[in-house]
Computed example of a mutant assay.
Amino acid sequence: MPSIMKILLFLSSALATSLSVLVLGYSMSTQWAETTMECTRRGDTFTNGSALITWKLFEGDLNRDYCPLFGKAEKFEVIPKLVETGEVPSVVLHALVLCLLALCLLFSACSILISLYNSVSNPYETYMGPIGLYVCSSLSACLSVLVLILFAVNLTVTRMAEKLVKHSAGITPADLRNESTEMMLGYYLVIPYTVLSLVAIAVIYIYDQAAYTHRREQQRPTEDAPKEIMMY
């Protein structure tokens, strides 16, 4: 039967990971970024329009105000729309972001199961012990950081927002400039997910160090005993 300390620490780790899953789940359902740009009809000498794109992971909103003609608001599914624009790098990066987020949730679920299993049993030092939790939570934290980098690169380096607006404008040529992107709540919520994954690791590390110290203290009387006594 595990000790009270072990039960509390592993349950605390499971709680931290469960909170991180809730945070990431809400993050994946809300806005991740907004992209704005100025827009004119090709040949105009002044700027008279703008476009605003609100990005979520699976869908988005495009609002064109006289960009290049009159206003129009439309909803779109992100990956199918990017495929239509022909921006292959953007499609690949966005699909990679979604896959990494799915892996984050998978590894977090494994961390929760391992924590709960350890809270009611005493497994050996295998993948079902602290080692397994270290691996799963570390992968969750690392992959979530990679998600932040890839999503930001996809919006700021590739031309997917510009291509999206031009594709929506149809045959009317438009000049786009002064593009700017602001990250929203969904993007920043990945950060607390990463922190909570690291908290789960820290809690189990505390248990691991305490268990190691306890084992050393139990071995010390034997190590310090006289050789004559140990012979019997």
Results as ranks from 00 to 15, higher is better:
215 R>H: 12
54 T>F: 09
31 Q>N: 13
150 L>F: 14
111 S>Q: 06
22 L>C: 08
21 V>F: 00
143 L>M: 13
208 D>F: 10
141 A>E: 07
147 V>H: 06
113 L>M: 10
7 I>R: 15
40 T>L: 12
184 M>D: 14
25 G>H: 00
138 S>Y: 07
71 G>T: 15
225 A>Y: 06
14 A>M: 06
31 Q>Y: 08
22 L>Q: 05
10 F>I: 06
108 S>L: 08
167 H>F: 02
29 S>K: 10
173 P>F: 10
10 F>D: 00
46 F>W: 03
83 V>K: 15
165 V>L: 06
38 E>G: 05
74 E>G: 05
5 M>G: 04
155 L>N: 11
107 F>V: 03
58 F>V: 05
14 A>D: 04
72 K>M: 15
231 M>R: 14
24 L>Y: 02
190 V>A: 12
175 D>I: 12
94 H>S: 04
37 M>T: 01
149 I>P: 07
92 V>M: 07
7 I>L: 13
231 M>E: 15
47 T>P: 00
10 F>Q: 09
213 T>A: 14
184 M>Q: 15
139 L>T: 08
109 A>V: 05
108 S>I: 08
156 T>M: 11
188 Y>C: 14
71 G>Y: 10
65 D>Y: 08
229 I>T: 11
200 A>W: 03
217 E>R: 12
112 I>H: 09
226 P>S: 10
1 M>I: 01
144 S>Y: 09
229 I>F: 09
152 A>T: 11
201 I>F: 05
20 S>C: 04
110 C>Y: 03
136 C>R: 03
141 A>C: 06
73 A>G: 13
19 L>I: 13
196 L>I: 01
63 N>I: 14
69 L>N: 13
27 S>A: 15
160 M>A: 06
115 S>N: 10
126 T>Q: 02
215 R>E: 15
47 T>E: 09
124 Y>V: 08
17 T>N: 00
110 C>N: 00
74 E>P: 02
74 E>I: 04
109 A>I: 02
12 S>L: 13
125 E>Q: 13
70 F>H: 15
95 A>I: 04
112 I>L: 05
10 F>W: 12
133 L>K: 01
56 K>W: 08
112 I>R: 03
153 V>C: 11
28 M>T: 11
214 H>L: 11
98 L>G: 09
191 I>A: 15
72 K>Y: 15
76 F>I: 03
73 A>L: 14
9 L>R: 07
46 F>I: 09
150 L>K: 11
120 V>M: 10
24 L>W: 02
115 S>A: 15
133 L>R: 01
144 S>W: 03
67 C>R: 12
141 A>L: 03
120 V>Y: 02
232 Y>F: 13
103 L>G: 10
113 L>T: 00
58 F>N: 15
186 G>Y: 04
133 L>A: 02
95 A>G: 00
52 L>W: 08
146 L>V: 11
172 T>W: 11
70 F>K: 14
196 L>K: 05
143 L>H: 06
231 M>Q: 14
143 L>T: 06
41 R>I: 13
89 P>F: 00
17 T>R: 03
91 V>G: 06
113 L>Y: 01
54 T>L: 14
101 L>T: 00
14 A>P: 00
148 L>G: 11
119 S>G: 00
139 L>F: 02
